[in-house]
């Protein structure tokens, strides 16, 4: 029973570790450079999933305030929140000054309203959001190096490239 509980509770980690090991295995054993890069991508994906799953919280929703909550914070003294979303360019100056005056009272009323248990931690989402795009661009660099190797050596098999380098040495 204890073992079953440990397995089911940590099921997500099992999946990430299996994915990560698939990626690592491909990176270690495959000769084809593109297959190695596919392995690297699988590895990256498992890390992304790992971070996102750490942010999961029972009974919580995505870290975006609902419109009512956002308006309750900004809107209970006029409609500062209301016209901040469709057209923030227009009359924001007037309302913002008004908003600035009453800021202290609003912040006290508000922090009691937002329950931290109802929202997940935004930080892992932020980290992975940038990691995805950075991962794509580093993959682009890796692919371009592979392409350059192909134009140099006529192959993307690692051992054949090494053979050609060795035979060129002597």
């Amino acid at each position: 029973m204890e073992l079953l509980k440990a397995i089911v509770g940590g099921m997500n980690y099992w999946i990430f570790i299996i994915l990560m090991m698939i990626g690592l295995y491909a990176m270690i054993t495959k000769n084809n450079l593109v297959k190695k890069l596919i392995g690297m991508s699988i590895f990256q994906t498992s890390i992304l999933l790992f971070f996102i799953s750490l942010a999961v919280k029972e009974g919580a929703t995505i870290p975006i305030l609902h419109h009512d909550q956002a308006h309750a914070k900004q809107g209970d003294h006029g409609e500062g929140g209301k016209h901040s979303d469709p057209s923030h360019k227009g009359k924001e100056a007037a309302s913002a000054i008004e908003e600035g005056k009453e800021k202290p009272s609003v912040s006290h009323a508000g922090s009691s309203k937002i329950d931290p248990d109802r929202f997940t931690n935004p930080l892992p989402h932020v980290l992975m959001l940038t990691a995805i795009v950075v991962g794509v661009s580093t993959l682009g660099v890796a692919l371009s190096i592979t392409q350059k190797l192909y134009t140099e050596f006529g192959t993307i098999e690692e051992n054949e490239i090494l053979d050609q380098l060795k035979s060129g040495d002597d």
Binding site: Q74, S107, G110, S111, I114, P116
Partner: peptide
């Protein structure tokens, strides 16, 4: 930090 981000960001 998580608590701060969730409750104070809007303020």
């Amino acid at each position: 930090l998580s608590r701060h981000f969730i409750t104070e960001t809007i303020n």
